[in-house]
Structure formats: C-alpha cells, structure tokens
C-alpha cells in the first residue's frame, strides 16, 4: 500500500529525514518509534502533505501512485488520514459540519453520492460509539475548548467517519491519562482491518501495550535504524533509545 524509498525532507531549511525507507502493506500496523527530534512527526506530516515540509529526494508510492505529487486534500480523498498530535481548534465551524463537508468531498471523489443530513447523522451516531464521544462535542466548534483527551478522541472519531485506507497516528498517546489512552486505543483497535494499514508514531512503548503492532521501526536521525516485531518495543522500553543511537553512531 505504501512504499517509501530514500525519503529526504527539510523543514525551514533543516534536513530532518535523511533517506528513509519503509514499506507498509494493507492490514498491517507499523509502529514508528524514536527519540525526540528523530523525525517521527515530520514523516507523518510529509505523508499528509503539510505545506512547508519540503521533500528533497526519494519517492513515496501509495497504492502505486506518486503520493508526493498530490495536494493534501487529494491524499485525504484517496484514503490517507493523519491523526494530529495537536489537533487544531477552529472556532466558528461546528465539528459536524466540518466532518460532513470532509466526508462528502471524499465520497464525491470516489464517485459515491453525497450523504444527506439524515444519513450523515445516523453515521455520526454509529461512529461516536467507537471512542465514546459525547454528542455535545460533535456539535461544538471543531476542537474548541476540548480537553487534550477529547481532542484525541475527536481525531479517532473523524478517522472512523472518514474510513481511510492508510491511517497515520502522530503521537496519539501524548497527553493522555491511562483511561483516555485505553478509550482511544480501543477505538483504534476497532478500526483495524485487513484492508487498512496503520502507522502509529509514538515516543513511548506504553501505547503499544494497547495497540499491538505487527512491526516496530526505530527512527534515529532521519533514518530507520532498526526494525523488528512487537518485542523490539519492549526491548526499547527496557534499554532506552541510547542503545540504538550509540549503534548508529558507531556505523
């Protein structure tokens, strides 16, 4: 589904990704871990097409197409979804309106009829169960005045509505207490399926107790320094990142 080759990317003139390779197939959950500043979030934003994140070399094939040539909205319509580490507050636009506009843009792109208000509200009702999101949050302006946990739940709720093929979760665990983490991770697990791939970006192993990955990659200084199964995360938990950083330095 996703094939990243030799990806280099800069933000504000600083090279962050320095030749990253990663292949993700449908049905797989990949965890991308790494110390602060290793480029985890940059990878997530580059894949979603954030302006200002400049790709200088390499390629990203998504479903066989050149992902990097697509505008952010086109990527979303093709099934790429980024759950933001810091979801943006948008006063004056209700969550429900925002989501309906997004879903219908995606449906239109897929050649499906737009959902009317009734059908959309039925879908909202169904999907709000995934992360147990309160009806009042759905009607409020996007993320405005939401707690940290509510914002993260809202991201997963959006993911449930938009039904992406490739979901990228950027530090979805940051700022969550253990109860909120369980709810959010539970929601993500419900959305795991054989035709959906997920990239879970996280600094801590904790999240991976709840969202058990098929593969774990460790990002150090803009490259994948090591890949393995879910046990690699445990090893990192025990040994810390310095161990791999030293290995990379010694190469």
């Amino acid at each position: 589904m996703l094939d990243i080759k030799g990806l280099r990317a800069s933000v504000g003139g600083n090279e962050i990704l320095k030749g990253l390779d990663l292949t993700v197939n449908a049905g797989e959950v990949h965890a991308v871990m790494g110390p602060n500043g290793s480029g985890k979030s940059t990878l997530a934003h580059v894949l979603a097409g954030r302006p200002g994140y400049e790709v200088t070399a390499g390629s990203v094939a998504y479903k066989g197409r050149d992902l990097l040539s697509m505008a952010p909205e086109e990527r979303a319509r093709e099934g790429v979804f980024l759950a933001f580490q810091y979801p943006v507050e948008i006063p004056g636009v209700s969550n429900v309106y925002f989501l309906k506009a997004a879903l219908n843009a995606i449906r239109k792109h897929r050649g499906q009829p737009e959902l009317d208000a009734m059908d959309f509200l039925a879908l909202v009702k169904e999907k709000s169960k995934v992360v147990d999101i309160d009806d009042s949050l759905v009607k409020r302006p996007v993320n405005e005045g939401f707690s940290g946990g509510e914002k993260k739940r809202n991201e997963i709720f959006q993911m449930a509505i938009l039904d992406p093929a490739l979901a990228i979760l950027d530090e979805t665990d940051s700022g969550l207490d253990i109860d909120a983490l369980r709810i959010v991770a539970g929601g993500v697990n419900q959305l795991r399926s054989s035709d959906r791939a997920m990239i879970v970006v996280t600094h801590y192993q904790r999240l991976l107790d709840y969202i058990v990955p098929d593969f774990v990659h460790v990002l150090v200084d803009g490259r994948i320094a090591r890949s393995g199964g879910k046990d690699l995360a445990k090893e990192l938990e025990a040994k810390g990142y310095e161990w791999i950083e030293r290995e990379v330095a010694a190469r």
């Binding site: 302006p51 948008i90 997004a102």
Partner: peptide, 18 residues
Amino acid sequence: DPLALFYLRSRGIGEQEA
C-alpha cells in the same frame, strides 16, 4: 491560520473551500 487550513485539507476539504 496555515495550520488550520492544512487541518481542513488533510480531511479532504479542497483548498478554496477550506
């Protein structure tokens, strides 16, 4: 806000509409 604009676009909403 460019970040808000990106947020909307990352959900499939076209740039002009966003």
